[in-house]
Every structure is written in C-alpha cells, then in structure tokens.
Amino acid sequence: MEKLVNDFSFGLFFWQIILFVLLLLLLRKFAWKPILNAVNDREEGIKDALAAAENAKKEMQNVTADSEKLLKEARAEREAMLKEAREIKDKMIAESKDQAKAEGDKMIKQAQAAIESEKKAAVADIKNQVAELSVDIAEKIIKEQLANKDKQLKLVDDMLGDIKLN
C-alpha cells in the first residue's frame, strides 16, 4: 500500500483526467456518434429491407394464388365450353342424320310409288297392246279361217269339240 501511495504521481493523474475527458468528448463528437448512427441506420435499413422482402414475398404468394385461381377458372370454363361444343356437334350430327334418313326414306317411298305406278301403267299398256295384238291376230286368223266355208264349219266343229271336252 505504501508503495502504491509512493508511486502515485499527481501530475500524471491530472493529465490523465484532462486528456481522457478531452479524448472522450472529441471521440464522441467525431467518431462514436457517426459510427453508431451509421451502424444503427444500416441495421434499421437491413431490418426494413427484410420486412419489405417479407411483404413482397407475401404479396407474391397472394399474386400467384390469385393467378392460380384465375387459371383454374379459365381451365374450367374452357372445359365447359368444349363440352358444350361437343354436345352441340353431336346433337347437330344426330339431327342431320335423322333428317337425312327421313328424307331418304321419303324419296325412296316416292320412288317406289312412282315405280309402282309406272309398272302398273306399263302392265296396263302391255295388256292393251297384247289385247289389240291378239285381237288383230285373231282377226287375221279368223279372216283367213273364215275365208272358205269348209274351214268355217271345221272351226265351229273344233270349237264345239273343245267345249265338250271342257
């Protein structure tokens, strides 16, 4: 203890206090305040930036969710439209098929009727012609047959014979 008191130099103590306080004031003004402020600002900046990034991320998520939803809706709509179109197409095809069939049937029937009437007309015509022809033939034959008396009598005989047979 005595050594400590002996070693104590008041001058040094005095200078130390003066110099240290001076140094403290100067450093506070020119160094620590700017440094600490800069560091604080930077940290605040980083914090803000992080918060902003977080917000942006959230917004981004919202946006993607929205767009996903839109996409989904659009897809569903497209699907529905396609389905409808397909249905319409099918319906139209079926309708046209039916129509075509009906038309065809009608035409076939008409044709058949025409054919039938033609046939009938043709058959009647043939009948007439055949009757005329046979009448002509019969006229000629009869004319020829009945040219002499004998033959006329013979004919009558034949005919009478035939009738008998019948």
């Binding site: 020119f30 620590w32 305040k33 800069a38 600002d41 900046g45």
Partner: peptide, 18 residues
C-alpha cells in the same frame, strides 16, 4: 484513436454505411 475512428466515421459517411 482520434485519427483512426474519425476516419472510420468518415468512411461510413462516404461508403453508404459499409
């Protein structure tokens, strides 16, 4: 100390707090 830290403070002001 004064020189070291005041120049450090100045470099902060100059280099955008880096």
């Amino acid at each position: 100390l004064l020189w070291l830290f005041s120049s450090l403070a100045k470099s902060y002001a100059k280099n955008n707090s880096i």
